[in-house]
Amino acid sequence: MPRARSQQVSLSDTPYYHCISRCVRRAFLCGDDSVTGKSYEHRREWIESRILFLSHIFSIDICAYAVMSNHLHLVLHVNEIQAKTWSAHEVLNRWHSLHKGTLFTQQYARGDTMPSYAVELAERSAEAYRERLTDISWFMRELNEPIARQANVEDGCTGRFWEGRFKSQALLDDASVLACMAYVDLNPIRANIATAPETSDFTSIKQRVKAAKTGTQPKALYPFVGNEHKEKNEGILFKLTDYLQLVDTTGRITRQDKRGAIDLSLSPILQRLGIASENWLTIAIQFEQNTHGVVGQEQSIKRYKNLQPRSRPNQRCCRLLA
């Protein structure tokens, strides 16, 4: 049986998660349907726009994403500390950009004069919304439900559009986070729908490359801050240039089908992660095949507190990340 979502997401153990949603129907999420000849390519823009919009509403950062023909990938970072700093007014304004809320929350957000009992109810609602704005399940709901409704209207049908629920994996350490990000960013290249990271439409890597050309980082994506900013802990603790070079090199090897042709162990980022080049290629190219549930290096798995008594970590993944 699948594990309950509450047992899969434990923010006390890790704020990083890999989420995947897949279509249940034969009709494509995006791309071109070779059977009917109909193009669904415009739906990629729907999804990317929704992802980037939600990144400004939720206290959940987008580390990586890729919108494929019948599924999408996300690497998310839950920022509980940020959400705790929001005032009740800010929480309500954010939530009202998604839903109407209640009469009391609308009055409270406007600053109307209210009786004490109504203020209490509005503030209680704000605390409930604050929790939702750090909840991955709510994030995925707010992403998937509008897309499903739009697609059903366009297809002239009703019923389920997505599979029963999204899949999520806990990423316990830097090695698993970066390996998963690279896997997500390289999905279009592996699927042979792009030839380079910078030409991979509707992916986070294209956004990062585009911004890097101007010396900036995308505001909607969780930034790389470099090792020198560990004390700030407000981003991914590696240099963006190192990551872009690593993804580009891995992508070239993937396209040429010459694994190991370039010695990836020379990359500073892999040296700091302590991952051998062959192991990196295996995990970055075949992340889903080699991982499930909880992903991390062996010492991170041992620290993980919320595994079910009968659950066992993927030992092959632990070895690949070593």
Rank of each mutant, 00 (worst) to 15 (best):
K206I: 04
S55M: 09
L186T: 11
Q271V: 15
A83P: 05
V67Q: 10
V35S: 07
V295M: 00
T134C: 11
Q217K: 10
I262G: 07
P15T: 02
L76E: 01
A83Y: 03
V247T: 13
V35D: 11
A261M: 12
R252G: 15
Y222C: 12
R160F: 11
A212L: 09
T254E: 13
Q308G: 15
A182K: 05
P146V: 01
S10H: 10
R141T: 14
I236F: 08
Q299Y: 06
T203V: 08
R50H: 02
Q308H: 06
A322E: 12
V153N: 14
R130A: 07
D173N: 00
Y183D: 00
I60P: 09
E234N: 10
R149A: 12
D185E: 09
G215H: 03
P309M: 04
R25G: 01
T291F: 01
S10V: 05
A211T: 09
N279W: 05
V294C: 07
A220D: 07
Q150G: 10
V225N: 06
K167E: 04
E123C: 08
P2E: 07
V9W: 06
V153C: 11
N192A: 11
T241W: 08
Q315D: 10
Q286E: 08
L133S: 03
T113P: 04
F166S: 11
F161C: 12
C30P: 08
A261P: 05
W95I: 11
Q299L: 12
F58E: 06
N93G: 10
S49D: 12
R190P: 14
G31M: 15
K100V: 02
N306D: 00
H18M: 04
T250Y: 14
I236T: 10
R190E: 14
G164I: 04
S59G: 10
E48M: 02
I47H: 13
Q315Y: 13
A179V: 04
I20D: 00
N192G: 00
I62K: 05
P313C: 03
P188I: 02
H99S: 13
H71I: 04
P188Y: 09
L178V: 11
L98R: 08
Y65V: 02
L281K: 11
S69G: 04
G260H: 04
H42R: 15
Q245L: 07
N93Q: 14
R124C: 04
P146S: 13
I285N: 12
Y129T: 03
H96K: 03
I205G: 01
I136V: 03
Y40C: 05
R141P: 02
Y108F: 08
R319G: 02
V78G: 01
S69K: 11
P188Q: 07
T102I: 00
Y129W: 03
I283W: 02
H77N: 06
S87P: 07
L178M: 12
T36P: 01
P223A: 09
G226N: 08
S311G: 05
G111D: 04
E154A: 14
F287G: 07
L29K: 04
P223Q: 01
K219S: 13
